[in-house]
Design a protein around this nucleic acid. Structure first.
Length: 655
DNA sequence: GTAGGGTTAG
């Protein structure tokens, strides 16, 4: 224990500490109520030791009291105090220590300034962190890096890049840490005009200064390209890395999985397992691998990966388990996803969200709502994503009333303010149910400009209900917001086609061409014996194609006898009816179904995945086939699952 | 003394 010394008078004793902190300025008022002048060198030493040991014990308040009577705290003492404030999450104590530093002049010590910046950053007070940086005269690279890190952590990428320009201008050389921070800053700098260009400049900088062998720098660079969607640049960085480890392999696999090339992700994973002996896959790697399986609906492969995860004991983290739930859901195996969920010892809101989204995609809206309710009952607070999932589930199942109630509860019950995505969900929910007036009212009542997702939902609903007038309004907005999105032009052309407005169809197609865009080709795929076979509508490569067409022709004529009428209105060209029939018969989904009929055993469920929404003709043909061939057929389109059985689809023809 | 990859939706 220590004994308090005699108080000595100070000018501003009336300042309560809180008054002082609230000014947020660091002028230098006297700080101590106790005389600093009477301490001896021996006492200094003792006080420093005392403060340090109090910090280590977690007695920060007592440590601060001793600090008050210690005129010469050492650097180590301050370091521990700063660390304790961050650790105990106490901004007021942090400000107090900072004040002492300023008073003693130690705030100019770049080592301590760095620690202060880190402390404020951890305490969530970025403005204080910046202030320390501004007031530090001797900015070592550590000081620069600390402020970059602090700014990058709160997403202020553009500020990092501005400061980085200043640093370069002053001729201060970057180190390997600087590069990782500024590369991250490129990704999250919203207001920088050409962030990718900036990233490429930094890339050049890195090479010029001989950092191409630094594994952290190169992995961050790879990841930057990945986040900009520049897959080939990312791959170039990865291939050129002289040394790779599990992190760099995982980053590259994640890049493929997230940028629409899941096949490549799986190939690279295979290469990693077979050839990269120093880089063993870990649970983070597996999350991306599972995402790739989910994207491909590769069930057999997914199960194989699940086995690998279990054998290697990589199933211990929540992200892996959530990714597993999603993988099974996307592969059409709701039950297996539910089993993973049931067997979890610990869950978080993401595990629940995964399950809700699975049921929603399969059209089990009521079940999704039940799970949502069970989740909240068990004390998990829903996140904005929970609502996207459960509202989506209502939309797929046509549960308008339930969806509206949930939407209202967002603010009233959970204090979550709907984002553009949630409004898009509501427009989708109402629009699909052909309640266009209400959908429009949602859009008109928005406080900010409606985003592309909102208009996209409306356009999608117009497609279902063939509402030309509203479609024109929605697409006008969309053509301005995302002129590069070919899908919008195609949707509008579809609507004109259905309305037989051929001149308008021509006009939209011309617009599409004039902007150098192309209709995304329909593609369907099926996994048979761990091999994925994909089909596009015009495909001369597959040797089985003739056989497939022959089978489809035979089925088609049989179906016509049973009342099937080809839905040729989906064809965007004004052609002879016969020609149109030929075109719809060659749709990729039908080829995949035919392939499944030929190459899987009787009684086995056929699982197809498609990159676009199912067309009406494919939908009705698949219904017929499920009855004719007595097969269950599971089709995942871009939005949801269709479960065909005995001539009926689980979507109730509502999709 | 500071650094790199991952979960749910759309």
């Amino acid at each position: 224990m220590w004994v308090l010394q005699t108080p000595f008078s100070v000018k501003q004793v009336h300042f309560s500490s809180h008054h002082y902190y609230s000014t947020h300025r660091y002028s230098r008022p006297p700080l101590c109520f106790f005389s600093p002048s009477t301490t001896t060198t021996e006492e200094n030493k003792n006080n420093n030791q005392l403060i340090q040991s109090l910090c280590k014990q977690g007695s920060l308040k007592q440590a601060l009291q001793v600090l008050c009577k210690e005129p010469n705290p050492t650097q180590q003492t301050y370091e521990l105090l700063i660390y304790s404030c961050a650790h105990q999450n106490s901004l007021s104590d942090g400000l107090d220590v900072h004040r002492h530093l300023v008073d003693s002049g130690s705030d100019q010590d770049p080592f301590l300034a760095t620690k202060l910046i880190n402390m404020y950053s951890e305490l969530g007070s970025i403005d204080h962190a910046c202030q320390v940086f501004d007031e530090t005269q001797d900015r070592t690279i550590y000081v620069w890096n600390a402020v970059f890190r602090a700014l990058a952590m709160v997403g202020r990428g553009e500020q990092v890049l501005d400061l980085y320009a200043q640093m370069n201008w002053r001729g201060i050389p970057s180190d390997r840490f600087t590069y990782t921070y500024v590369l991250k800053a490129c990704v999250n700098s919203a207001s920088t005009v050409f962030p990718l260009q900036k990233g490429k400049e930094i890339h050049a900088h890195i090479l010029r200064h001989g950092y191409e062998g630094r594994i952290h720098v190169m992995t961050t660079l790879l990841d930057m390209y990945a986040r900009f969607g520049c897959v080939s640049n990312a791959n170039a960085v990865f291939s050129a890395m002289p040394v790779k480890n599990s992190v760099s392999w995982s980053a590259m696999i994640a890049c493929y999985a997230k940028n629409g090339v899941p096949m490549k992700a799986l190939e690279l994973f295979q290469l990693m397992v077979l050839e990269a002996h120093d880089s063993v896959p870990n649970s983070i790697t597996m999350v991306s691998v599972l995402q790739a399986c989910a994207a491909l609906s590769a069930l057999d492969l997914g199960r194989l990966i699940h086995g690998y995860i279990l054998r290697r004991g990589l199933d211990s983290t929540l992200p892996v388990l959530s990714a597993l739930i999603t993988m099974y859901g996307r592969c059409g195996k709701l039950v297996l996803g539910q089993r993973v969920f049931d067997q979890m010892k610990k869950r978080d809101v993401v595990s629940w969200n995964s399950l809700i989204s699975n049921y929603g995609m399969h059209g089990f809206g009521k079940r999704a709502i039940q799970i949502f309710e069970k989740m909240t009952y068990q004390g998990f607070s829903p996140t904005p994503i929970s609502f996207v999932s459960v509202l989506g589930a209502c939309s797929h199942a046509g549960l308008v009333k339930e969806g509206k109630t949930l939407f209202e509860s967002m603010v009233s019950k959970y204090g979550i303010h709907p984002s553009m995505e949630h409004y898009a969900c509501m427009v989708d929910l109402l629009g699909r149910a052909n309640r266009m007036d209400e959908a429009i009212r949602i859009i008109e009542d928005l406080r900010s400009e409606p985003g592309p997702k909102v208009w996209g939902s409306l356009l999608g609903s117009c497609r279902i209900h063939c509402n030309v007038k509203l479609a024109e309004r929605a697409s006008k907005a969309l053509f301005e917001l995302e002129p590069w999105n070919a899908g919008n032009y195609v949707l509008l052309a579809d609507i004109y086609t259905e309305a037989k407005m051929w001149n308008e169809v021509k006009r939209v197609k011309k617009l599409l061409e004039a902007r150098g865009l192309q209709k995304i080709p329909g593609c369907s795929w099926i996994e048979v014996k761990r091999t994925i076979y994909s089909f596009v509508s015009v495909d001369g490569i597959n040797p089985q194609n003739e056989e497939l067409h022959a089978l489809l022709l035979k089925l088609s004529s049989e179906m016509k006898e049973q009342g099937y009428v080809p839905q040729t209105k989906v064809v965007l060209y004004d052609l002879e009816e016969e020609e149109k029939e030929r075109i719809v018969l060659g749709h990729s989904e039908k080829l995949a179904v035919a392939f499944g009929l030929i190459n899987t055993a009787k009684g086995e469920t056929i699982r197809i995945t498609k990159n676009l929404r199912l067309c009406e003709d494919c939908h009705s043909v698949t219904k017929f086939i499920s009855k004719f061939a007595d097969r269950e057929i599971l089709v995942r389109d871009v939005n949801r699952f269709h479960h065909f059985k005995d001539g009926v689809c689980s979507c109730g023809d509502y999709w």
